[in-house]
Design a protein around this nucleic acid. Structure first.
Lengths: 359, 359
DNA sequence: GCAGAAATTTGAATCGATCCAACAAAAATG
DNA sequence: CATTTTTGTTGGATCGATTCAAATTTCTGC
């Protein structure tokens, strides 16, 4: 069966079937896409011919051009593809996106690339109806590249102010305040901040000057929230060290070294991501310091891993899954409008924070 | 700028640019895809026109039809999309696939669907150059559906014998033997098996009769491996209960209830997946039984979670990442041949197994 | 048996690009 | 200056389908 003409160079097209069955393209097409409108007899004949010739069914490549819609949404990042499966934050976000896509039967195309050139090409040539952008580092380049495609897109974790771009983010100022207040109420007075990047690709201590000129307003807002609240509790925020990392192992550990090398060690750490917080817990434990006995830590994000580590992490939880769902829906039912949503966050108190030691 | 004609209904096509710039569509095309062969002056003029009219660049939909290649590989499963981000096994596999795709700049399209109809449609209309199939339950339907597309595809974890289908699997018999030998050498004599599905969607105890008629030879091979080795150690395998689960929480717990409801409780459990093994550890601990003091457990798969739980899981590790890499490469450098690869597995001894208690 | 309505079928147009043989213009050669 | 070579440009053909107005066939009711 189905093998009479197999092995030939050119794959069989719908037109071949039409000719072989003695019907027009139009009818042949209808047999596959709207079988109910073609007479049963003809339908069966065409189907039989298709079967006999080994026709694979209408090629989506052709159909796509006509239909215009791919029925898939692209998720892009500047990280390697494995980021989507490794990073806890990304995974929860993808779960939310998946949910929305499953509900409508849409597919997901993962877009990324090692280098800038390839990224540009991959974004230009991605077969999708719209993009969801994971704006980590290099987020603005990603946004620029995507804008060129003139397809709907949503930026996640948007770190810069550009009101012309649809985005879903969280209330960074409020989240930071909650974290700072929690620690201040536990009577902590000596703080350190593990910060996300402010703009350029650099790591190290940050001066107030640099904070003012920060490109990523997300980072700046969290800093502002922390300090505003600490001030309310009478903490001299000019003495709080801020160390900017790349949100990964190496620079975070370097930051901790630097922070604890100074004279007065902090009793509380404000980390702008759970990732850094988790690394910090590990680093402190390895150094013989007790968490939260010696040092309390509050993270930011609310990834599942935070609940499983020892001690479980106190953190500012973002509604990650919900953000993913909304982002996907924004693309799926896109109406041309630019939308900017800010989601609320929540303090989740676990065991990585405790009262400041007397002294 | 770039907004002169914005807001119009029809998006700008390459032909519009060509006309506006006073060149042929062939030249206009070259400006974008092979800029080096067009005279600088013309090139700049066309680019300027494109910019002015807000042209988004050559539409991949059109390009695709001509080029024929999508440069993306589809990964399909019958589970919901979130499976790719939730399941530890799938995640490690995806990391391997990602690696291979990153290396060649290919994209990944995730294909799945809640119901059968939609699955069929999604596979038929996926814009990919080939498929990698996660053959969990319902794997054969997935294979049949995919075969219709007449695109290259590889089945992973292939559970049934079909020599016409490319597949990558592991040496199930050998893995099962290793697991059984390890426990037998620890002087265990009373066993129970938590089995993956044999074919139909059912759960419950399995009779030797059912094993013989199993559709999934993967499951059957593991069973064969377990029993062959246990027999060598003088264990009466007819007395070893086999409980078939759906590899998830509910049926696994039901299986454990059933197994431990019997007269003589086993001192060792052979689980055909780490997932079941992990659930078993949890169930046993909740029941006040010590692992490995009262009951030893060996899993199968070698997912990272197994190393992190308490106690860390002894297991048969598959080279999951490598399988993913190879599968992706099989599609990426497809040459028309059917390939079937069997990878070796490895016993990883951790703390979930210990010597059998005297008595 | 026939007009008019309903159901099918047809085939040209379209979707948005790339490819390539043929042609034109410019540059190099004799 | 005529001829070859090089370099650029053109426009028709093609990729593989769907759509839709018009043409044709089949069905109804009388």
């Amino acid at each position: 069966m189905a093998s009479l003409l197999e092995g030939q160079a050119r794959p069989i097209r719908l037109a071949d079937i039409a000719k072989a069955a003695g019907v027009s393209h139009g009818t042949a097409s209808n047999v596959f896409s709207r079988p109910e409108i073609v007479r049963a007899e003809v339908r069966e004949r065409v189907k039989a011919v298709a079967e006999r010739m080994g026709y694979a069914g209408p090629d989506p490549k052709g159909r796509l051009l006509r239909a215009g819609k791919v029925n898939a949404i692209g998720v892009a990042t500047t990280e390697p593809l494995s980021y989507f499966f490794d990073d806890p934050f990304a995974r929860v976000m993808m779960a939310g996106i998946s949910e929305a896509c499953d509900a409508t039967g849409a597919g997901i195309a993962l877009v990324s690339a090692a280098n800038q050139e390839k990224l540009a090409w991959n974004i230009q040539s991605a077969l999708v109806d719209g993009f969801i952008l994971f704006c980590i580092e290099g987020g603005s380049r990603l946004v620029d590249l995507t804008r060129e495609r003139r397809l709907p897109f949503v930026a996640l974790e948007l770190g810069f102010q550009d009101e012309t771009v649809s985005a879903i983010g969280v209330d960074n100022v409020d989240g930071a305040r909650l974290a700072a207040r929690h620690l201040a109420e536990l009577r902590h007075r000596r703080f350190a901040v593990l910060s996300l990047t402010l703009g350029e690709e650099r790591t190290g201590f940050v001066t107030p000057e640099m904070v003012r000129s920060a490109i990523y307003t997300g980072t700046r807002d969290r800093l502002a929230g922390y300090f505003e609240e600490l001030s309310r509790f009478g903490v001299d925020t000019t003495k709080v060290p801020i160390y900017e990392t790349e949100n990964e192992e190496k620079s975070t550990r370097a930051g901790l070294e630097a922070i604890f090398a100074g004279g007065e060690a902090p009793t509380a750490i404000l980390a702008m991501s759970d990732r850094m917080a988790l690394i910090a817990i590990d680093w402190l434990k390895a150094r013989g310091l007790d968490v939260p006995g010696d040092v309390s830590i509050v993270g930011f994000d609310g990834v599942p891993d935070g609940a499983l580590c020892t001690p479980p992490l106190t953190t500012i939880a973002q509604p990650i899954t919900e953000i993913g769902r909304r982002a996907a829906r924004m693309i799926l039912d896109h109406d041309g409008a630019v939308r900017r949503e800010t989601m609320g966050v929540e303090l989740i108190v676990r065991a990585s924070t405790g009262p400041a030691r007397k002294g």
